[in-house]
């Protein structure tokens, strides 16, 4: 049982992530009166990229060789730690601390930024600069939103959080909602979604995330894309299992599949929400984004203050 849970935790995020991207694109296309591609298309895209030969820039260093693996491995590690099937404790549970999760994400962002600067083209540096600016401002909101819940439950362990949040009195739901709003804005920012970035743009001057991986090709590009999809799924699973905690307090073999089903439903609902939000907003001016991020920060701070007192 323990072993099966570990296998599920490790494999869930990489396997389901491209499906989430496919669903997002399909919904955005439907909102534009288009038919859109099949929801399994990202899988085919990844397979296609893995089979291609690779072209490296002659100015690239070891960073370009190593960073795709570091980024992807960070995402797998986070995926193994987050509460997918939280009621079943396993040896990894004690490591499922939200500070660890945030730090691993920063590690991935750091290596992405290095990758953008590595080849020395004009656009990668721009993308890295923008990404670091946004990351610096986003982390505060993300951290405070988790901190406020951690104070309510008196633990920073994500597994503990997801199990005990469902038992909180309804007077704490205001804190939960504020924290969720702060978390949601951080979700959009960290995953390069609207209004922060256009994930499907072809204009290099406007890219934030794609500009950093502009020199990657073949299998390394596939790893970057897969890691980006995994990051989105990780955030959605965190949102689903921590802020919408119903459906977790069960245990046993049959309820394992039930728990996964419930999780998938919640994930689907959140994906639809993200996709619809993306279709209805435009990209904000770059120097207006700090306003939005400081909103997230203030919401997290208010939630934290309410949790303390």
């Amino acid at each position: 049982m323990n072993f099966a849970v570990i296998i599920i935790q490790v494999l869930f995020v990489p396997l389901v992530a491209p499906l989430i991207i496919g669903v997002t694109r399909r919904i955005k296309a439907a909102m534009q009166n288009r038919r859109g591609a099949d929801i399994f298309q990202p899988y085919r895209d990844l397979i296609k990229l893995f089979r291609k030969a690779e072209v490296l820039s002659e100015d690239a260093t070891t960073i370009s060789l190593v960073s795709p693996y570091v980024v992807f491995a960070s995402m797998i590690t986070i995926g193994a730690l987050i509460p997918i099937v939280p009621f079943a404790g396993n040896i990894l549970s004690s490591y499922a601390d939200f500070i660890v999760v945030i730090s691993l994400m920063i590690l991935a962002t750091f290596f992405l930024a290095l990758n953008g600067l590595d080849a020395g083209n004009a656009f990668g540096g721009l993308g890295s600069s923008r990404e670091m600016t946004l990351a610096a401002l986003t982390e505060a909101g993300l951290f405070f939103s988790f901190m406020s819940i951690a104070l309510l439950v008196q633990s920073t362990n994500l597994i503990t959080l997801s199990i005990h949040i469902g038992t909180l009195p309804s007077s704490d739901w205001l804190i939960l909602s504020l924290a969720f709003l702060a978390f949601f804005i951080a979700l959009l920012a960290e995953n390069a979604r609207y209004p922060f970035d256009n994930p499907s743009t072809h204009l290099e001057l406007t890219m934030v995330h794609e500009a950093m991986i502009i020199e990657a090709s073949g299998p390394r590009l596939a790893l970057f894309e897969w890691a980006a999809a995994s990051k989105l799924l990780i955030f959605i699973v965190l949102g689903a299992n921590i802020f919408i905690p119903w459906g977790i307090i069960i245990s046993g073999w049959q309820s394992l599949s039930l728990a996964i089903l419930v999780l998938l439903c919640k994930v689907f609902v959140l994906t639809v929400a993200v996709a619809m939000l993306e279709s209805m907003t435009a990209k904000l001016r770059f120097f207006r984004l700090p306003d939005l991020l400081s909103t997230s920060f203030m919401l997290g701070l208010i939630a934290l203050a309410l949790a303390i007192f």
Partner: peptide, 11 residues
Amino acid sequence: KQRISKKITWD
């Protein structure tokens, strides 16, 4: 083992 070719940076 992947074939990796080195070309100029995107300019």
